[in-house]
Amino acid sequence: GEIPLDFTIKHPLQNTWSLWFYDNDRTKTWEENQIELTTFDCVEDFWRLYHHIKQPSELRQGHDYAVFKQGIRPMWEDDANKMGGRWLISLEKKQRNSDLDRFWLDVILLLIGENFDHSEEICGAVVNVRGKLDKIGVWTADTSKQQANLEIGRKLKESLGIHGKIGFQLHRDTMVKHSSATKNLYTV
């Protein structure tokens, strides 16, 4: 039968993205546990990767995935993140089976599809699988760009269908306090 034209070509992405995995091996340092698994620069390679790996809900607690623009490490210390922050979406344990995986996929699709007006401010996204609260963070480069960060937050809420408020935290505040005690610079 006929193959749709869209299935015969590769669709390039605006950016090349890296998938990272945080291993949580107690014998290693935090940095050593951050593993850059692979990169992808077209839609087809993203889907091939996505279908190959476990969903966040299947990961053991203490593990993370991160999807960041190539060259940006998923850590505060990276030059691209030093002046930045994150929109934080917290999920209760009961949401692990209903919302975690679809929120994570929708966040990645927003990122790689450049669906924010201010996509240039996006560094990447992280999903933390934890005991009490799972977290998804969308990291941006410059906390002083109010309009850009607010646009990103509103787009996230709208696309994921989140009804409650979400907050934006500076990395330098999160560094010194646990995320639940960190003040929000912005809220939408």
Binding site: H11, L13, Q14, E44, W47, D106, L109, N115
Partner: peptide, 18 residues
């Protein structure tokens, strides 16, 4: 400049591409 933008629905439609 120009930017390559894909909406969610289009990305999802390519999910089953061989």
């Amino acid at each position: 400049g120009t930017r390559i933008v894909y909406e969610r629905s289009y990305l999802m439609s390519l999910r089953q591409s061989p």
